[in-house]
Design a protein around this nucleic acid. Structure first.
Length: 773
DNA sequence: CAGTGAGCGAGCTTCCGCTTGACTT
């Protein structure tokens, strides 16, 4: 019997396909790419027509040996990697590395994992498309050149270990520019007027309506309310208009990330981890895709489910087409494998994500919702302005029965309910009319998911890299994801009720943020520098432009080293030019003079991050330094705020003949005594005012707590072995290394020998390979 | 893992896109 070897990219896919093909076919996977450019010397021979130097990655050595073994045994090797650029390159690398025989190698592709599709693919094999492979090589080489030439410039000019690249640097730019827009933004106030009306003809109901005008000033609002006091009200006009709503298309990677973030607050990497588990369990299709397409079999299964669950009238077959820039359509949309399973077993997040995917997929094939929008105008006899009430009634729910897409708008949504029955000309009485001062909102900060959406819109990055990119810019400390409290803001409210107008001064919290991305000072300085020196790379259209050329290469109309050469020559010149300019980029700002010494006060990025400095390094007297606090930024800190920093550390006095000092560190305010740290209590202590007496109290408290922490101490020739109580239960510590105590051991009873035994048995800490997380 | 910020300098950092495990304090 003929032995066949089929190679796909993912092991989960291999498992499924093996079932379809049966005897004579071994299906295995390459686990993605098996080779990459070497790390040293760029992995590219630039002088020699950009010849790439590929190496089997260290974590792929095992896979490659295994594949070689299997290929040797096979009569025919079927390479079934994805049909896109990267997939074609994987096919070519496999062919090269496994040294396959052209006569015995066939390249096949399929778009859905069904028996029919796979059998059909096997009947229509083709050759490896070298043009498509070349387009990938161009992509790979360009990214390496950009990344490995730009990053070292940053090491010299800003700070070591920083990074830059075609994708990540644009992501940071988007955040920095949005942040600047927000800083510049001045909220504009206006008065929004809401009227609540009684309906004499039906005593129970009330009608809420908003004025079709907002007043710029308090005086205008107040004078309008005085007019209202003297006015009569009547329904002047009622209009009803039919409307419809259509469902959103099935999920792609980026839309799944957005909805999971909006509906459940998942980070993009959380969503991907959960989706990966669902995929491996065979519950959903592949989760890294930019396609909204559903296979015919899936549409059929979904149609059956809709008909039996909701009825024929709820079914509407639609064909979705992908619009995203640079989409490569190697897969289907993300959908349940079995459309007749609305729920699954699994943990809570797996269930939630699965149900979301099921609902979205089903809804995408359901009927439009039919609505009726009603608008009622109310005339005010003493004013030209009108009140407008809007209502919405669902006449046929259609897809709304299962799924409603969320939006990023945080604006409070006025629920547009059903309006009471009224007739034109009917008189109304006001119950109360309220003018509230409202403020315009600055542009929204990005969440992880909304940044992914923006990148996708620009055609930058791929489904497999969205989550890693978001992590990289956070790991480099260009960006931080955090909550920030809002500020208290005063606003005015004028209320007309019971024939009386009253004014209230009120407060609200405005501008609080939850789980948003903020650029850091480093991110801002790096972005400004890159934008100044390498505007082309940071251009939002750069990726789209090179993608066009990659397409030309893929069609065989452009030679890839030529394309790279045209890009590289001017690019490399700009690198040299940037390195010629002496000095570092520190984002230095001169804030003014220190009133005490008359010396200049500056803020800048120092070796350890953002800092303030009084005096010059060249002065006789050494400058004073202070790190900025976490909530302070180079661009916005004022002279007063910076001077405040130098009031710390404060000398509190002596305790047990040693100095006690109060200051603020990375983990917040603390007092230091005898080179030990004692945290100040949040909301109770203030480092600017705390007294010695209180500091001693804190020191004693901590000493007491530490007593309970120590179970036992032994002194050994290797150092001090301590048995301690920790967060995760008792543990042993020696020379700053911690060791776990086996369960069911009484920590108190451990002897020195027991401890040494445990230490010896603990495997040496696997020194994490480079690329710290 | 909290304080620092001078200067020297070995050796290292870094990209984007395919994939899945090992990591547990």
């Amino acid at each position: 019997m003929q032995e066949n070897l089929v190679i796909v990219e993912s092991p989960a896919k291999a498992k499924t396909i093996e079932k379809f093909l049966g005897k004579g076919y071994t299906v295995t996977s390459s686990f993605g790419h098996i080779r990459d450019l070497a790390k040293k010397d760029f992995g590219i021979d630039i002088k020699n027509n950009y010849t790439p130097n590929y190496e089997v990655s260290s974590d792929k050595k095992k896979v490659v040996t295994e594949l070689k073994k299997l290929a040797k045994k096979a009569d025919i090797v079927w390479i079934a990697s994805d049909e896109d650029r990267e997939g074609e390159a994987i096919a070519w690398h496999l062919f090269e590395v496994l040294k396959l025989d052209p006569e015995k190698t066939k390249r096949i592709v399929f778009h859905e994992i069904t028996k029919d599709a796979i059998l059909k693919a096997i009947e229509t094999p083709r050759d490896i498309d070298q043009n498509l492979v070349n387009a990938q090589q161009a992509r790979r080489v360009l990214d390496r050149l950009v990344g490995f030439e730009l990053s070292p410039v940053l090491w010299k000019k800003v700070k070591p270990s920083l990074s830059a690249g075609r994708v990540q640097s644009v992501a940071v730019r988007l955040l920095v520019e949005r942040e600047r827009e927000i800083m510049k933004f001045n909220p504009v106030a206006s008065y929004r007027v809401i009227g609540n009306f009684d309906i004499p003809s039906s005593k129970s109901t009330e009608l809420k309506a908003e004025l079709n005008n907002r007043f710029k000033t308090f005086t205008e609002a107040e004078s309008f309310l005085s007019d209202c006091k003297e006015s009569d009200y009547k329904v002047s006009d009622i209009s009803r208009k039919p409307a419809k709503r259509t469902p959103a298309p099935p999920f792609t990677t980026s839309t799944l990330q957005q909805e999971a973030s909006r509906k459940f607050g998942f980070s993009v990497s959380q969503t991907m981890t959960i989706a990966q588990r669902l995929y491996e369990a065979g519950k959903i299709t592949y989760m890294r895709t930019d396609s909204v397409n559903l296979s015919d079999t899936a549409v059929g299964a979904a149609a059956n489910e809709i008909k039996s669950e909701f009825g024929e009238e709820y079914l509407k077959i639609r064909k979705y087409k992908t619009k995203a820039k640079g989409a490569q359509e190697a897969h289907e949309a993300i959908r349940p494998t079995y459309m007749n399973k609305p729920t699954i077993s699994g943990n809570a997040s797996e269930k939630r994500l699965y149900e979301l995917i099921w609902k979205r997929t089903i809804a995408s094939l359901m009927s439009d919702a039919q609505l009726e929008k009603t608008t009622i105008n109310i005339e005010v006899s003493k004013s030209e302005h009108k009140f407008v009430a809007q209502g919405e009634m669902i006449k046929f729910d259609g897809f709304l029965k299962v799924y409603i897409e969320s939006t990023d708008d945080e604006e409070e949504k006025e629920s547009e309910g059903i309006l009471p029955k009224l007739t034109s000309g009917e008189a109304l009485n006001y119950n109360n009319i309220t003018a509230t001062q409202r403020f315009t909102h600055h542009p929204a900060r990005f969440t992880e998911a909304s940044l992914v959406r923006k990148l996708e819109e620009l055609g930058i990055g791929r489904p497999s890299t969205y989550a890693p990119t978001i992590s990289t810019i956070q790991n480099r400390n260009y960006v931080i994801k955090e909550d920030r409290p809002g500020k208290e803001r005063d606003y005015k409210q004028v209320i007309l009720a019971n024939n009386k107008i009253d004014t209230f001064d009120k407060q609200e919290i405005a501008g609080s943020e939850k789980s948003k991305l903020f650029p850091t000072d480093i991110g801002i300085v790096v972005n400004d520098y890159l934008l100044e020196q390498f505007p082309k790379i940071l251009d939002f259209n750069f990726t789209a432009e090179v993608e066009k050329e990659f397409d030309d290469i893929a069609f065989g109309n452009l030679n890839w080293p030529e394309m790279i050469d045209r890009f590289y020559n001017p690019f490399h010149k700009s690198i040299d030019a940037a390195l010629e300019i002496s000095g570092r980029k520190s984002g230095e700002r001169h804030l003014g003079e220190d009133p005490k010494t008359g010396k200049p006060l500056i803020v800048k990025i120092g070796r350890y991050g953002p800092m303030a400095q009084i005096g010059d390094v060249e002065d006789e007297e050494k400058p004073q330094y202070s790190a900025l606090r976490r909530d302070q930024h180079l661009e916005t800190i004022t002279l007063e705020e910076a001077l405040e920093l130098f009031k710390l550390p404060r000398d509190l006095g002596l305790f047990e003949d040693k100095k006690v000092v109060a200051a603020i560190g990375r983990f917040g305010p603390y007092v230091r005594h005898d080179s030990k740290f004692y945290s100040l209590k949040k909301d109770i202590d203030d480092p600017y005012t705390v007294e010695l007496e209180r500091a001693i109290e804190l020191i004693n408290e901590k000493r007491e707590a530490d007593k309970n922490k120590i179970i036992n101490v032994f002194t050994d020739e290797e150092g001090e072995i301590q048995v301690l109580n920790g967060r995760y239960g008792p543990y042993i510590t020696l020379n700053k290394q911690n060791y776990r105590i086996p369960k069911s051991t009484d920590a108190k009873a451990l002897t020195v020998e027991d401890c040494k035994e445990i230490i010896k048995k603990t495997p040496a800490k696997t020194t994490r390979k480079k690329g710290k997380k």
